[in-house]
Amino acid sequence: MNELMPEHFMFLSAALFIIGMVGVLTRRNVLVIFMCVELMLTAVNISFIGFAWEFSQLTGQIFALFIIAIAAAEAVIGLGIIMALTRQRDTVDIDEVRELRQ
């Protein structure tokens, strides 16, 4: 492969998305899980920007811009919830948060 192909960034995106997903599946620290979700969103951004590059469009770039903005909002809410959690109970281990079940 002599040129930069769309497959390149698609695989990068897929890899980062999967890594993020696996992180969400395996980690127990709520903050790390949160970081993994951010990683997944970044992977999505790579896809969008890559597709935009491939099509010579800007639509994908702008979509990615909005994803970053929304991710920031999500981060603020998420950290707020985590703060409230630690205020109630001194833990960030999601396995300890299981009063509601069955």
Binding site: M21, V24, L25, T26, R28, I33, I94, D95, V97, R98, E99, L100, R101, Q102
Partner: peptide, 17 residues
């Protein structure tokens, strides 16, 4: 079936994935 609802977030994520 109720037992599937373990209360563990990890399991819930697992179900989605």
């Amino acid at each position: 079936w109720r037992r599937a609802q373990t209360g563990l977030i990890a399991n819930y994520v697992f179900a989605i994935a």
